[in-house]
């Protein structure tokens, strides 16, 4: 029988505090300067591969967040906000692209701001030309994924924050067998936490193996 657990596991919402900078000092300094009230540039775009931390930063920016993967026509965008964060712009459909085009024009005119995230630099985005060039007109930074050592450190930090005690070889075990982007690894850590609580077992390599087998879709 499966032990149901109370939903008391700590979930750390994305914030700038719990972002691991890695080799992104330039992009983060740029972003911090852009988020400061003195900034005059209206558009900031982060691009990089999945798991580099783009969504994390967008959600942490305190701008009104929309995700084009969930809302490809941007129907949930509330135009009255003066700072918007639009994630996965490459996933916008035709209507969504026009919506973002209008949003950019409006924000430019009203002195508002847009923080966007994409899988590729503006030059290689398959979007309407008028939107694509607008996205390329602001500050564009690449976000690099963490190195293995940095990921280990970040994962260790997350485990500590959850109060998890992992055997020392657990991290290298996970690194060999799981996708190594931070999003997957963090999701895996949550899964391990839950599973160990449900099973009332300490975290051991056999337990990790079971979690990996059951959570192949992470």
């Amino acid at each position: 029988m499966r032990q149901l657990i109370l939903d008391l596991l700590p979930e750390a919402p994305p914030s700038l505090d719990n972002f691991v900078a890695g080799s992104n000092a330039e992009a983060l300094t740029g972003l911090a300067a852009w988020l400061a009230p003195t900034n005059r540039e209206s558009l900031f775009l982060l691009w990089g591969e999945a798991g580099a931390g783009k969504s994390h930063l967008l959600q942490a920016s305190q701008c009104a967040y929309s995700d084009a993967r969930r809302d490809p026509d941007l129907s949930t965008v509330e135009p009255q906000n003066d700072c918007h964060a639009v994630d996965h712009v490459e996933a916008l459909d035709a209507a969504g692209q026009i919506a973002l085009f209008n949003l950019i024009n409006r924000l430019r005119a009203s002195g508002g701001r847009l923080l966007a995230a994409a899988s590729a630099p503006p030059r290689r985005l398959a979007l309407r030309e008028d939107l694509r060039t607008r996205l390329g007109s602001g500050l564009v930074y690449r976000l690099l994924p963490l190195s293995d050592a940095e990921k280990l450190a970040a994962l260790g930090e997350q485990a500590r924050a959850r109060g998890l005690v992992l055997p020392p070889e657990a991290f290298s075990y996970l690194f060999l067998r799981a996708p190594r982007d931070m999003r997957s690894l963090a999701a895996l850590l949550t899964a391990i936490d839950r599973y160990s609580l449900e099973q009332k077992r300490p975290i051991t390599l056999p337990l990790l193996r079971e979690v990996l087998q059951t959570s192949l879709d992470i």
Binding site: E26, P122, T133, R134, G136, S137, G138, L139, Y141
Partner: peptide
């Protein structure tokens, strides 16, 4: 191809130099 991206590139150079 266009002026907008040219402008973006210049901003990047200026920001890089400042950083």
């Amino acid at each position: 191809s266009n002026v907008r991206e040219l402008e973006g590139a210049l901003k990047k150079v200026l920001a890089y130099s400042a950083f």
